[in-house]
Amino acid sequence: MSGARLGPWIVVGLAALYFVLPLIATFEFSLSMLRGTWSFEAYRVVFADPAFRQTFGFSVLAALATIVLGALLVVPTAYWVRLRFPRLRALIEFVTLLPLVIPAIVLVFGYLRLYNSSSWLPFTGSAWGTNLLLVFGYVVLSLPYMYRAVDTGMGAIDIRTLTEAAESLGAKRRTILFQVILPNVRAAVLSGAFLSFAIVIGDFVIASLLNRPAFGPYLALIGQNRAYEPAALAVVAFAATWGCMGLLQLLGGRAPGSAAAPLRVRRKAIP
């Protein structure tokens, strides 16, 4: 082929290397715990550690709670703003982007000041309350991704006309939101969920400052004390995140009126 064709491929290849190389290196390192041979010894050690299972399970639960709470907060908000207050869209978008600008550590310190055990709302007074606070923090962290995804998803369907169609058929707000709007932005919610999941699994700052037994602090602890296991953990966490999301996609995509429908509409032009 000609050189003009080759240029773009080189760029793409370099970019791929930039992302893939560290992963491959980490994976390769995680296999070399036993001297002179490749083995899954590091993985055996990791899986045998009950703390791994506990912390990872905790983080997965926190991630699911974050996704549900985030979706319940973001979908109605994005819907309402688009339908009734289109002029507020820019403002809401700016607010949802704040977590990208304000470091998580500032957020946690704010939480600790506001909700400590001697405050008017002592969230940190109990493990249960602290867990709740943790999930709230995660919802805030994932807000930029969740809101953008859902808002874009709503832009792709004509929510105003769908709402009016449902209203003319006698439906009330809640029915419209849960039976008409939500199912049609499922794909968008899922892509927001994917990023939320990754954020929660990878979080260190909030969990460690709130002193919760999450995966991030565990990974940091192992990283300080061991050589090969952290690499194995990173690979496991990476695979598990993708695995969980695949599962979500599968479950989410199975419901009637698959989320892929709008895409197919565009591809298929029926006379």
């Binding site: 004509d158 769908l162 169609a165 049609n184 429908a261």
Partner: peptide, 21 residues
């Protein structure tokens, strides 16, 4: 409100619910 009027409406853009058969 529209949902209490017992009217039927047909829109230019069809407005069928994409998630339903």
């Amino acid at each position: 409100p529209p949902n209490a009027r017992r009217i039927g409406m047909v829109f230019q853009a069809y407005a069928l619910f994409p998630n339903m058969s």
